[in-house]
Design a protein around this nucleic acid. Structure first.
Length: 422
RNA sequence: GGAGAGGUGGCCGAGCUGGCUUAAGGCAGCCGCCUGCUAAGCGGUUGUGGGGGUAAAACUUCACCGGGGGUUCGAAUCCCCCCCUCUCCGCCA
């Protein structure tokens, strides 16, 4: 949700933001509805004030034993007029609210202008992309050969895009989750275990709804949604609350499975583990002081990088351009690992600052100190990191010419001491 | 799923036979006084959101007692619907 005052005071800036983000929204309606709402409100407030005054007069007269019939008649009519205004108010508010929820966040001024992923900016690259001296197999091939991946079983049990890991593959996933959680705990994050199913308000709060409903698995009977990321339950932990300034920043880490219908993205990069409907992910969420949020975004990225470095996987940090930013983000860095088997950079983490966009929807404020006004917190999150593509990168990058897969040193203790998969 | 109890300001908690209660009282917070320090004590003060107003305040106004609707000149208080919490029972990992 954008700041209502910004919409009122500087609509041009909002429009410029939308343009740079390459989205077309019905902003004119928002502005005119807002104006209409204010006007309506002023009129009805005048009448309500009159009613309050006259109603007191009735009470006074009654006590004095005077007649109030005439006032009653007048006030009845006045109340009817107020009711009309209120009906109109509800109507406009509802329409406005609906529209406001569909308006995306504005990019931060530091975000590079651009229209699609080609305009994203590579900030830095870590690790050696050494020329392979043997023919590296794509992860689905090596994975099935050494018996850690079973794509057929996944298709049978559920359908395309659902994966079965076997033996060391299953162990690897479990190991990665613990490994990542341990790293983030050491970085200062508080571990939480949260529901994988959330209600509608939570989904609206973080911005998945109403726009992205098509991408969500929805349980109609209960009106509950499978989470597409831990961001949803974790960020919503502090919905409708005032957070004391000295508790900020809040830092949470959580493992959850994630469910995404991926409607409309069939065909592209869908082989093996590249794009699946259910995957595991360890997430980091921060709730920050507004003045510190961009600094915190940088350290959040570093925290995610630490995972990839510990796994000895070459990666790069990409800053998304305005046109590639997601709905709720004001600024976002993607982390991409290199997978030499498919010869692609795979996005395994997305670290974003949402500024006050989610906080306004979630109603999460900083507890005010005397003399200060209530302010919304800033929220951030980043994957640290998503598993399937990381597993793909491990299967490819740590592949040996003899068809084995080496387990990164730091992960070995989590793998029951094994140094190779399979 | 069945039965009962309840949802009030940062927290606790009155009010709920409709109008000097736009919410008593307490706690906590803030300011001041007092006191070797601390504690206690005394006095004052403190909700949220929106509108108008101001350089900013002051000020002013509307709304808010789980959510929505209704009755009434007037609703925290009466009526209807929904949601949530707790207790007991049933079912179940």
């Amino acid at each position: 949700m954008l700041d209502r005052r910004l919409i009122r005071d500087d609509p041009d800036r909002v429009i410029r933001g939308f343009e740079s983000k390459n989205v077309s929204v019905d902003f004119e309606s928002v502005v005119s509805l807002d104006r209409e709402l204010l006007e309506n409100m002023r009129e009805s407030e005048k009448l309500k004030h009159e009613r309050n005054v006259k109603t007191e007069e009735v009470a006074r007269k009654k006590r004095a034993g005077e007649k109030t019939d005439e006032l009653h008649r007048y006030l009845k009519e006045l109340s009817q007029r107020i009711k009309d205004y209120e009906t109109k108010d509800k109507e406009i508010s509802a329409r406005l609210e609906e529209l406001l929820l569909t308006l995306p966040n504005l990019p931060h001024e530091s975000v590079p202008i651009g229209k699609d992923p080609d305009d994203n900016v590579v900030c830095r690259t870590w690790g050696e992309l050494k020329e392979p001296y043997f023919d590296i197999k794509p992860h689905w091939e090596i994975g099935e050969e050494i018996g850690v991946l079973d794509l057929d079983a996944g298709r049978k049990v559920t359908g395309r895009g659902y994966i079965v890991f076997r033996r060391d593959g299953a162990l690897l996933c479990r190991a990665l989750i613990n490994f990542m959680l341990d790293i983030h705990q050491a970085q200062g994050y508080e571990e939480v275990l949260v529901p994988y199913v959330v209600n509608r308000n939570s989904m609206i709060g973080t911005g998945q709804l109403p726009k992205l409903q098509e991408d969500m698995y929805h349980c109609e009977i209960d009106d509950l949604f499978l989470i597409p990321t831990a961001e949803v339950p974790v960020t919503n932990l502090e919905r409708d609350s005032f957070i004391p300034a000295d508790r900020l920043p809040l830092m949470y880490t959580a493992y959850t499975p994630c469910f995404r219908r991926e409607a409309g993205s069939h065909g592209a990069d869908t082989r093996g583990l590249l794009r699946v409907h259910q995957f595991d992910k360890v997430e980091m969420v921060r709730v920050a002081y507004p003045e510190h949020s961009y600094q915190e975004l940088e350290t959040l990225v570093e925290d995610a990088c630490e995972v990839l470095e510990a796994l000895e996987l070459p990666y790069r940090v990409v800053e998304l351009c305005t046109g590639d930013l997601s709905f709720a983000a004001a600024k976002c860095y993607d982390l991409e690992v290199y997978a030499p088997g498919v010869k692609k950079w795979l996005e395994v983490s997305s670290c974003s600052n949402f500024e006050g966009f989610q906080a306004r929807r979630i109603n999460m404020k900083i507890k005010k100190t005397p003399g200060e006004k209530h302010r919304f917190v800033h929220t951030l999150n980043g994957s640290g990191v998503a598993l399937p593509r990381t597993v793909a990168a491990i299967l490819e990058h740590h592949q040996t010419p003899t068809g084995r897969v080496r387990i990164p040193e730091k992960l070995v203790p989590y793998m029951q001491g094994k140094e190779f998969l399979g």
